[in-house]
């Protein structure tokens, strides 16, 4: 149908994943860390869809649906953890979680 080379799609997924990785490593606010994780999961899904489209098979889209389910479950649990963190420490700084105590 269209003439987009496979490597451009995979390279786009790789760039988005790299940006998300920089966000996870740099930010200290836990909300931003969770957003960067979403970016990384989404780019993994993009790589699956690109490869599936290249081979004209539906399996890439099926795998994207699985990643979508995973991202939804992950974000629900992660946002619950953010709310609990804010209740206990009145901050969204992940540095307060480096102390291991009950």
């Amino acid at each position: 149908m269209s003439l987009i080379p496979l490597e451009h799609g995979i390279a786009l997924a790789g760039l988005l994943f790299a940006i998300g990785l920089v966000g996870v490593m740099t930010r200290r606010n836990i909300v931003f860390v969770l957003m960067s994780l979403e970016i990384m999961l989404n780019s993994a899904g993009l790589a699956f869809v690109v490869a599936g489209a290249h081979h004209a098979s539906a399996e890439g889209q099926v795998m994207f649906l699985m990643i979508l389910t995973l991202a939804a479950a992950e974000v629900a649990v992660g946002l619950g953890l953010i709310i609990q963190l804010y209740r206990r420490f009145k901050t969204t700084d992940i540095e307060v979680l480096s102390a291991l105590k009950g």
Binding site: I4, L46, V49, A53, G60, A71, A72, V75, L79
Partner: peptide, 29 residues
Amino acid sequence: VFFSLGAPFVALLEAIVYAGAIMVLFLFV
């Protein structure tokens, strides 16, 4: 991008579930 790759179903799901539901969840928090 998904739509241009010939995956309209996944493009709609991306708009509805990711940009819709998950981001609204973030906004509530």
